[in-house]
Design a protein around this nucleic acid. Sequence first.
DNA 1: TGTTGACCTCAACCTTGGTTGAGCCAATAA
DNA 2: TTATTGGCTCAACCAAGGTTGAGGTCAACA
Lengths: 154, 154
Amino acid sequence: MDGHVDTTAPLTIGEVIRRTGVPASALHFYERKGLVFSGRDGYNQRIYARHMLRRISLIIIGKRLGIPLSDLGALFAELPANREPTHEDWQRMSRSWHRQLQERRRILENLERELTGCIGCGCLSMKACALLNPDDELQQEGPGPVRLQRRPTA
Amino acid sequence: MDGHVDTTAPLTIGEVIRRTGVPASALHFYERKGLVFSGRDGYNQRIYARHMLRRISLIIIGKRLGIPLSDLGALFAELPANREPTHEDWQRMSRSWHRQLQERRRILENLERELTGCIGCGCLSMKACALLNPDDELQQEGPGPVRLQRRPTA
DNA sequence: TGTTGACCTCAACCTTGGTTGAGCCAATAA
DNA sequence: TTATTGGCTCAACCAAGGTTGAGGTCAACA
């Protein structure tokens, strides 16, 4: 009954593609970028450890959240490269991930709240709104037009 | 007292740069993309209507929210091209903008909440988590590994 | 004995969002 | 009168995140 799917065997790239929906070109690309890695079989074909599926899933989610691959790479650097990650390994990485998402969302929400304030005040105007006020009044108060660009970047 | 800053005169590109912090190369680029426009003076130099500053500010904010320039362009298409936008014009555009931001944030929050659920369950595991489950159990229930990619994209 | 399918490499190309640099023009300041 | 300043155009380049295509290898099927 359970014999026809081995849940410990490594995967071919074709299986990884079918399971994740990520095309070979992207898997190769992620490998070049150091986000995933694979071994080779006797015919020089990639074999993937099953826990690579988790990395790939996180890449998919991360992409949809707009997280650059380099950030994901930094996150994955917390995972062991030479053995299957343990429960604790994943959890540790998860906490970093979660902190990063929270920080990111905080910035986005601040920005959106400020802008919503501007919309709420009925103006969306340079005259009365700090977020949208890189000139006019501000100009008379100092050198400072570049308010928008001094904030931390999302 | 108020004589030395004319608040109705058009702006040179240098003034726009000083007030927004956006370099000429980017302003040229936005113009090529149809996001902003300018007239020319007698020497073929750009002159900007003051309301272009609002567009530019929205571009800056939009960029930080990760909104593609093409989306901003679609938003700006609601504004009149041949005259200065009225209060009502800006408000109408603001409502579109706000709806779009809300939708975007909703998607991001759902995604993050799902992922946080996975983290909360202590697993971040393919075994028990729908978000991170493009294989294993699911595979035995149908064709379905590509769950992650079937959801609406952020 | 094909030929089909799965996989490989490498180079070229694509889109987005710009920047950099060369070469030119016009107004102004020393 | 010659910089210097401020602007212009156009082409080339960059990084990220890939895709596409050419050309090759291997195993398995008819």
